[in-house]
């Protein structure tokens, strides 16, 4: 008897929240679909629907060579960055941490610079490997530092990360200045999807296996978030799992920085919003986080494309602005607890 009432309570709860089987709110999902379609039709060239049937038309070319690749890159970057944020937050056990506030992003930039000067002909994949290594080392150092210091104030953790990132950035700039590549480096500082065309973004697909791996490791990452002692008591090898997590983060960050540049705040805002509503059980919330990240980037990109139409505002600016505002709201509402 007791069991059946419990079951019906759960069902009614599900209906009220509009959750479907995959744990994703249908409203969020339809919003995401609308944004995706919308993204295809925004840009300097108007797509003529009637022409799309003809594979030789201009509209068809715009769609396949520019709009679809851009959509794919946006989705992959959004999903990847939001998922990265959530992993980092569980490893560091602080809600204000994301790749941009833990030195990871700056580490990746430094890696690309070093590869550009030391091995100019190494190609995108080689650059990515450099970025991954530097990003991973930078994140490992950050985590090691954070673990050594016992903070009473949780806001200090990302502040230290920002300082640390600035130091790495300064090193990168000095290095770039010495090697006369300061100008080309400025290009990656701000995320920008306008350069994404067929043939120049395919590296982004490497984010897919990273996201799949994260999903498979979701329970382990949640246990990581419980702290080293609980993790140890539950039989999780803490250091090994944290390293896997940092590696997945380094991969995603490096790939995004190389292809589209630095995009801030996605990894911060989305996980916080999702946690407020759905909690922190990653097995359930990762799909929502991924969808949310993609949607946020889509919104930022569409806003950036429409703001100075037919010119574009780089997504680094719109994401920073929009994300920053949302984040301020979260803090003011007291949703982001320590």
């Amino acid at each position: 008897m007791n069991f059946s009432t419990q079951g019906s309570a759960q069902v009614s709860c599900r209906c009220r929240r509009g959750l479907n089987v995959a744990g994703i709110d249908w409203r969020l999902f339809s919003c995401f679909c609308l944004l995706s379609v919308g993204s295809l039709f925004v840009g300097a060239d108007t797509l003529v629907l009637d022409d799309l049937a003809d594979p030789l038309s201009d509209s068809w070319l715009t769609l396949t060579a520019s709009r679809l690749p851009r959509l794919a890159a946006l989705l992959l970057a959004g999903v990847g960055l939001a998922v990265c944020g959530v992993i980092l937050q569980h490893i560091v056990r602080n809600r204000f941490v994301e790749p941009a506030t833990s030195g990871g992003l700056d580490g990746a930039k430094l890696g690309i610079l070093v590869s550009l000067t030391l091995l100019p002909g190494v190609g995108r994949f080689g650059q990515m490997m450099f970025a991954v290594v530097f990003c991973l080392i930078a994140s490992l150092v950050y985590v090691a530092v954070i673990r050594r210091i016992r903070f009473s104030n949780t806001a200090l953790v990302p502040v230290i990360g920002l300082m640390y990132g600035s130091v790495l950035s300064a090193v990168a700039e000095f290095y770039a200045y010495q090697n006369n590549i300061l100008q080309s480096m400025q290009g990656w500082l701000l995320g920008d999807f306008s350069k994404v065309v067929q043939g120049h973004y395919e590296l982004m697909y490497l984010i897919l296996p990273v996201v799949v791996l994260t999903y498979l490791y979701a329970h382990r990452f949640t246990v990581l978030g419980m702290g080293e002692e609980v993790a140890g008591s539950l039989g999780l090898r803490y250091a090994a799992t944290a390293s896997v997590g940092l590696f997945l983060v380094a991969m995603t960050v490096s790939i995004t920085v190389i292809t589209v540049g630095g995009v801030y705040f996605v990894g911060l805002v989305i996980p916080n919003l999702v946690a407020m509503r759905y909690g922190d059980n990653l097995k359930n919330t990762l799909p929502v986080v991924a969808l949310g990240g993609a949607s946020l980037l889509l919104i930022c990109d569409i806003v950036g494309r429409l703001m100075l139409y037919p010119f574009e505002v780089p997504i680094g600016l719109t994401a920073g602005g929009l994300g920053g505002c949302v984040f301020l709201l979260i803090i003011l509402r007291g949703g982001a607890r320590g």
Binding site: R95, G225, M226, G227, G235, N281, R337
Partner: peptide, 24 residues
């Protein structure tokens, strides 16, 4: 092992937390 965990800041439901007892 059960320790005092003042730094525990994950937002989990009770049944989700208990489910992690099955993690091993």
């Amino acid at each position: 092992t059960l320790r005092q965990s003042p730094g525990f800041n994950l937002r989990l439901k009770v049944h989700e937390l208990v489910a992690f007892g099955r993690f091993p």
